[in-house]
């Protein structure tokens, strides 16, 4: 008898073999079981996990600082330029701390000569292979003074570190701290050029007493550690 194409007849033909039906039922039941537990894992459990990422969490990052200092006292002759190196590897930086900023204070005291006229002192932090933010706009790499005031220089070493606490939005603590867990900054030596130009009243020092100057260079290395709190 030829088929008439009815859906019921077609379906009964497909399921006409009992052994085949048993295999099919086993396959369908297995598919349902698999669908149920993988469906739970994917659609319910993973949805919860992913919902944690749907909106970035807000974290507040604060910094604890610890300063290390180095000092050098140099006596410069008139019109002399000298270079001083501060090897940062000489510092003992505590575990978990990174170098954030290097601050330099150059001081000179005029005590000699007839008029005790202040000399001109200039200091420059020289760009070298010290790993730091050399092009950062907040840097003060050069300074000059002829009024016996200290010269303040600053070099940012760690990217974006300014000591102020920051608020970040991130999926987890690890990613929030990623910008603050870099290594490799502050390796090398700080190179500083000092320049002295002795000033006398009207350019005249009759007994030639004021021909040099003692210059003190104080280097403060600001190190920081990070703590994080979800807000």
């Amino acid at each position: 008898m030829s088929s008439n194409g009815d859906l019921t007849e077609v379906m009964s033909n497909i399921t006409s073999n009992n052994a085949g039906n048993k295999f099919t039922i086993v396959s369908f039941i297995a598919a349902l079981i698999l669908l149920s537990y993988t469906g739970y894992d994917t659609v319910i459990y993973r949805t919860d996990v992913i919902s944690d990422f749907a909106e970035d969490n807000q974290y507040r990052i604060t910094f604890s600082t610890m300063n290390e200092t180095m000092q050098s006292v140099q006596t410069l002759q008139d019109d002399e330029t000298t270079n001083i190196q501060f090897d940062l590897s000489d510092l003992s930086i505590s575990d978990g701390y990174s170098i954030g900023i290097i601050e330099v204070v150059i001081t000179s005291e005029e005590e000699e000569g007839v008029s005790v006229q202040c000399d001109s002192v200039a200091g420059d932090i020289i760009e070298n292979d010290l790993t730091a933010q050399w092009n950062d706009t907040s840097n003060d790499l050069s300074g000059q003074d002829s009024s016996c005031q200290p010269i303040y220089l600053k070099l940012r070493v760690y990217p974006n570190y300014d000591g102020e606490s920051v608020t970040v939005f991130s999926t987890n603590e690890y990613q929030a701290l990623q910008n603050w867990s870099q290594t490799g900054w502050g390796l090398g030596a700080l190179s500083l050029d000092l320049d002295l130009d002795v000033n006398s009243p009207l350019g005249f020092d009759p007994i030639g007493q004021d021909s040099d100057e003692e210059i003190t260079v104080d280097v403060t290395v600001v190190t920081f550690s990070v703590s994080i709190q979800e807000t």
Binding site: I14, T15, N17, G20, N21, F23, T24, F28
Partner: peptide
């Protein structure tokens, strides 16, 4: 699946 198992059987 039912077609495969029917004709395999």
């Amino acid at each position: 699946i039912p077609i495969y198992f029917r004709f395999l059987s």
